[in-house]
Nucleic acid binder design. Sequence first.
RNA 1: GGGCACUUGGCGCAGUGGUAGCGCGUCUGGUUUACAUCCAGCAGGUCGGGGGUUCGAAUCCCUCAGUGCCCACCA
Length: 812
Amino acid sequence: MGKAYESKEHEAEIYRLWEKSGFFNPDKLPGKPKKTYSISIPPPNVTGSLHLGHALNNTIQDILTRFYRMKGRKTLWLPGTDHAGIATQNVVEKELAKQGLTRHQLGREKFTEKAWQWKAKYGDLILEQLKKLGCSCDWSRTRFTLDKNYTEAVLTAFINYHKKGYIYRGPRIVNWCLRCTTAISDIEIKYQEKKGKLWYLKYPIKGDTNYELHTNDANHFIVVATTRPETMLGDTAVAVNPKDKRYKNLIGQKLILPIVNREIPIVSHRLVDVEFGTGAVKITPAHDKTDWQIGKENNLEVINVIGPEGKMTKEAGKYAGLPVLEARKKIVKELEKLNLLEKVEDYQHQISLCDRCGTPIEPQISTQWFVSMKKLAKPAIKVVKKSKIKISPERYKKIYLDWLDNIEDWCISRQLWWGHRLPVWFCQKEKDKYIVSVNQPKKCPYCNKCKMKQSEDVLDTWFSSALWPFATLGWPKKTKDLKEFYPTSLLSTARDILYLWVARMVFSGLEFLKKIPFEQVYIHSTILTLEGRRMSKSLGTGIDPLELINKYGADATRFGIIYQTNRDQQAIRFDERAIVAARNFINKLWNISRFIAIQIETEPKIKIKNIKTQTLADHWIISRANNLITSITKKIENYEFGEASKEIYEFVWHDFADWYLEISKFQIADPGLKKETIRNLKLILCLCLRLLHPFIPFVTEQIYQQLNTCTNSSDLLMIASWPKIKKNFINLKKEKEFASVKEMVMKIRNWKIEQKISPKEIVDYKIKTENKNLLRYAHQNLVVRSAHNKKILAQNELKDLIEKLGKVKLTL
RNA sequence: GGGCACUUGGCGCAGUGGUAGCGCGUCUGGUUUACAUCCAGCAGGUCGGGGGUUCGAAUCCCUCAGUGCCCACCA
């Protein structure tokens, strides 16, 4: 064994050993276990590469997978990737842009071909990175959301929803990205503070036939404030808060919309903020979400004045065809001319941008497909309320329930090319007529003639992700895997996709299999930078786990990250120093093993079967070790990984190495104790290796292989059995007694330093205790003598000291 | 605007009612024989401010301040 543990020398080889064994595959586990444990990996996007969040989440999953595998469960951790519709499409588009190409130039077919090429090249990169991290996934079951079988599941789901009447089609206001030319969800939007203007426009009250004459008389106008004056062409009302006294008697009256000269009503609505602007809001249902809602509740006309390319439509009259900003300038000018512009203020506001490409969002009316949610949400609420699915930390339960309680219908269509195309076929003659079918219908049932045309839209990426826990196991076929591993045991994920993904898997699972998709949801901490900022590539605050793995090893990276977490903690500030500490800890473990390996060489025939404890130190360490088993087991079962890692770190380093191992040197020097001591060392080491294996699988396996004496039944630590507690070795009395000795020794060390006595210096004298070998160790610390500089502790001084320390019965 | 969380020695954190701990760093001393990725030890904190409950509060309650994350329909 080398002097220091070099992760690079071992990790790849160890991983190969595991893969070769086949034990990542639950069907190949020895002993044919019956009880299962299963996790579906949150599938990383094919655009993705490993970041710290992945490292944390997948370390957690690997800890549990390895833990339950060692506990004898038939354990499956199923890996895979997500096609990630818009994200991947944008990446591929960026690639094309480098060659000066757009997707439209390529056309749909060629473009998707490119996307598939991209997937083939980079799609599984992150899975390779997970291997570097040590993840024990069953790679033979790897899935991708666009796989043939998976696609079948997606289409089956769509058709089922449709049959049951959950799916409908219709116009609605959506976030429209001008560049991606697709609807995007609220969650795909990011916000940016931007300096803008707030224009105050005067809308004349109807009844003043010659309102031009009263342009300076406030009684004849309502003033509205807007950041987007160009949308006024599409206004179909002005809204005020019903409680607003200023406008109370105007509600129900009409206004004349300037320029357009349309009559529009004054309506009241609770959403109007009395404090903002003038308290009166222009309502443009076609181009603002709130306005759309107010419009809907008041049956207002919807007039679309901005088209999907960001240009004014013909509804905009003389402004038709102009880009939005140009139209804005001209409209403001015209209003000014009409003396209908009261004032312009500077205004700091948040604008919404497409999360993927940064283009400002233009709310648009467009025809989209929806899943009606109210009914589907109900059982998903129930299973969490009744704790059929447990959510940890518990506070997220409320967040989950709140979202489902206020759920809106799910817009499932996207105007993208990369994804599952809707199994919907339109009649070419009557363009709004369609049928739902997986394959192209032979004959159009509407016109009997046309070749029906498939919808151009693809499904929201989350529509397919929602089926992940069962589609990966073979659904809609009734497979053996599905029967065995569904529901899965755990879903571990980040907080931000609790509803986007988790909630949707829950109602999908309940809808299609009538069973929950997982028994437990664990929401792990978010990793922030040391300064407490969000980690992100665009901010340049990300840390690449692969660099950490390179520098410190996969084990150290895993252990260091886990060490920083606490179960219920919302966020952790990532500190590389923890990884360094973990690397040192691993090296410590390595050297403990090295020491023990050397001892074993002197006594090669020792088996660890029959434990004998003779000295106080023996009793103490074995008792402590047995308590440790219970504690670590409980902590892993309760998702307290950070707590577990801290406890085992303490034990290995500060109990086992600092104390027992040092004492063992004296015991080994005693022929009567040598064998038992080496046996105990081995016993504790092998125990530690097993307890540590889920956390730091590589180094523990390496030591296990090299030591070659922990082995009882199995040749791989990976499938060695999880330690069981032996209650008769727990001896709290001896633990307490040892603690006193420890305390005494430490106090004497302090005392020696205070007296400026070198730690090396030794004095002979006699102490009677029931444990002479412990005494030999204590000797060094207790007794002071130096032939050279004659620092001799007088007998009575020593006696006083020991009496002061008091807790141990020692007689001089 | 709402919700959730956080605030403990220089830095990152643990500690949930009873003598303030850990890692890193600093400083002192130590290395022939498992490890300097080490060992032994010192110093360093009125536990964000204020108020309350209690015999007793870092810990429970109220309040204020700061920080972060998430959600949201402020034109």
